[in-house]
């Protein structure tokens, strides 16, 4: 009885403490939960992986802002790593807005450091051959149209200021239709713009990485194959990391996997507390009725 009374009157600060610990402990201990992969993520992974046969490049677009980066940054890392390890030519691109550029840069640095500038087959990663970092160019929609017609002409230089023309990776890239896949990682509706313009107009396959909140509304586009695949929220990113690990045999710190462990703890904690709260509610109610 005492316990239920305590639960009923529980100071919310205990709950705050529990939430804080549920996030911190998995982060420090590198804790992980088993991850089951869902079809949208698997489809995306398979599509990206198939590019190693055609050698058509992948474009990773970091179209998000720092506020959604906890959820979305791991996606960029997992994709970039996959492309490098599987020997797929890859473009890193900050997207149509200025904010993404810095986040794409973080993805570049983090992943390259993690794999120590070496691919799975032992070759070292060479800029210009294995990947190219695209700069920010203003113009919004006109940029997509430009990429559709004249890829090199739209950007002219890469993010380091060197002429794109001189990079070996550009030999087979003239316009968007030479691109194997675009994966737009965004927390906003900008992914739809890529879907409509790059996908429908220029016929380039488009995949998407998005926040858990936006994922629900993208299911219809997955059904119509307007998006070839999707990573939905942190869970999607964790699934992608898991696919990387199991299929490419690489063992690195799974950023989203660990964050997902925190998520699991918090979700389960909330569910557990709600159930306890309800039990105490009923126990106390019955007790009161008995006394009446």
């Amino acid at each position: 009885m005492k316990f239920w009374l305590f639960m009923d009157k529980l100071d919310r600060r205990w709950l705050f403490l529990a939430i804080g610990l549920s996030v911190i402990i998995p982060s420090i201990t590198n804790m992980r939960f088993p991850v089951t992969t869902t079809p949208p993520t698997l489809n995306l992974w398979n599509f990206v992986d198939s590019l190693k046969y055609t050698k058509k490049p992948l474009i990773i677009i970091c179209d998000y802002s720092p506020s959604t980066s906890p959820e979305l940054q791991p996606m960029a890392h997992a994709l970039f790593r996959h492309a490098l390890e599987a020997d797929i030519p890859v473009f890193l691109y900050g997207g149509l807005y200025t904010e993404g550029f810095g986040l794409a840069r973080i993805a570049e640095e983090t992943v390259l450091e993690e794999i120590d500038y070496q691919k799975a087959n032992g070759d070292s990663v060479i800029y210009g051959e294995d990947y190219v970092f695209l700069p920010f160019v203003p113009g919004g929609l006109a940029v997509i149209a430009g990429m559709g017609e004249d890829f090199i002409g739209t950007f002219r230089v890469d993010a380091r200021g060197d002429s794109l023309k001189n990079l070996p990776m550009m030999d087979n890239v003239r316009r968007l239709e030479d691109i194997g896949l675009i994966v737009d990682i965004a927390g906003s509706a900008v992914s739809r713009t890529w879907m409509v313009y790059a996908g429908t107009r220029y016929g380039t396959p488009v995949g998407v990485g998005t926040t858990a909140v936006s994922a629900a509304e993208y299911y219809t586009f997955l059904q119509t194959r307007q998006f070839v695949g999707m990573m939905g929220g942190m869970k999607g990113a964790a699934e992608y990391e898991e696919l990387n690990a199991s299929n490419l045999n690489i063992e690195v710190r799974k950023q989203a996997g660990i964050a997902m462990a925190s998520q699991n703890f918090v979700h389960l904690l909330i569910i557990f507390m709600v159930i306890l709260g309800n039990i105490s509610f009923f126990v106390l109610k019955r007790n009161k009725e008995r006394r009446l």
């Binding site: 939430i19 804080g20 996030v23 911190i24 982060s27 420090i28 506020s67 959604t68 980066s69 906890p70 959820e71 926040t211 858990a212 909140v213 629900a216 929220g233 942190m234 869970k235 964050a259 925190s262 998520q263 918090v266 979700h267 909330i270």
Partner: peptide, 19 residues
Amino acid sequence: GYTVMARVSLLIGRIQFLL
């Protein structure tokens, strides 16, 4: 229920900053 995940992500982001 659907929003919990997005909110916890924000906390994870801050904790990652601190740690």
